[in-house]
């Protein structure tokens, strides 16, 4: 087709097409730049002042130079407890939905329940925790309350990622295991779970990353203070986490170097979340490589 035969409309369409392609690329470049700039801002503000001392020291109420030791510890402690509570139930629920659930109305109701639960705003879980632990059991704002409420928040997401990865296991393999005379549970334990493990672990990492940065739930259920000691494993002491500490420092603290603490806390928070998302998958990558060879 030469230029002579192109109608004016055709030519216009071609120009539009070129312009639009350019515009889409520009949009993409803009967004990627924005994201990288965001990360750069967070890290460049926080990283220079970061030291091991800051990570382990107790926070100060009035003077400059306090650290984030106990809140960092609480963050990991609450995350660990909440995962211990939510993984068995969440993964179990996912397996039920993928392997056992019959196609009927009851399953439909269950599915609606899971989807509704995953749409509940995190602040509402915080209020639930407040109502159960502070009001009903009268134990106040504690690490235990925070961990359980956080576990509630994790449950639907865990169930969903487990269901997805279990569903992805090909039927042939399952049929082969049944042909060997396995019971359903033996098949799940020895065939389905090992194959779905990578997906499940990736999902758990995502959930853990989100839970680590979660603040609304913890603010309402574990409070705005710590017991003031490092390595406090008591389930009933107040459990301010790093994310909540960032909020506290930014909004209420009267420490001189509040801004600098906030900068550094934000950087630590982001780095840890990214590490949780990436680091735990490295063994899986290596494993995958081995399998491919």
């Amino acid at each position: 087709m030469t230029d002579m035969t192109r109608s004016r409309k055709m030519q216009r369409s071609l120009v539009y097409n070129k312009l639009a392609t350019g515009a889409f690329y520009a949009l993409g470049a803009l967004v990627v730049l924005l994201i990288l700039w965001l990360l750069f801002t967070i890290l460049s503000k926080g990283l220079p002042g970061l030291s091991l001392d800051f990570l382990l020291k107790l926070p100060e109420d009035m003077d400059a130079g306090g650290g984030i030791g106990p809140v960092l510890f609480n963050s990991f402690y609450i995350l660990f407890l909440s995962l211990v509570i939510s993984i068995p139930i969440g993964v179990g629920a996912g397996i039920y939905m993928a392997e056992y659930a019959p196609e009927n109305r009851f399953t439909e109701v269950l599915r609606i329940c899971v989807e509704s639960l995953s749409s509940v705003p995190s602040i509402v879980f915080g209020m639930l925790g407040l109502a159960i632990f502070a009001e009903y059991f009268q134990i106040g704002l504690t690490i235990l309350g925070g961990a359980v409420s956080l576990a509630f928040l994790n449950l639907p997401m865990l169930a969903r990622v487990t269901e997805e990865s279990v569903r992805a296991v090909p039927n042939d393999v399952k049929n082969a295991s049944y042909a060997l005379g396995m019971t359903k549970f033996q098949c799940i334990r020895t065939v389905v779970l090992p194959m779905a493990l990578q997906g499940i672990i990736t999902g758990i990492c995502l959930v853990a990353g989100r839970a680590f940065g979660e603040s609304a739930v913890i603010l309402l259920t574990a409070g705005l203070s710590t017991s003031g000691e490092m390595w406090d494993f008591n389930l009933f002491s107040p459990g301010e986490t790093l994310a909540v500490h960032l909020w506290y420092v930014q909004s209420e603290a009267i420490v001189e170097d509040a801004a600098s603490i906030a900068d550094r806390s934000a950087a630590v928070l982001v780095i840890i979340v990214l590490l949780i998302n990436l680091l735990f998958r490295i063994p899986l990558w290596i494993n995958n490589r081995k399998l491919k060879k």
Binding site: R210, G213, V270
Partner: peptide, 8 residues
């Protein structure tokens, strides 16, 4: 972008 906590 999803990974960054909302408080940040």
């Amino acid at each position: 972008l999803v990974g960054i906590p909302s408080i940040v």
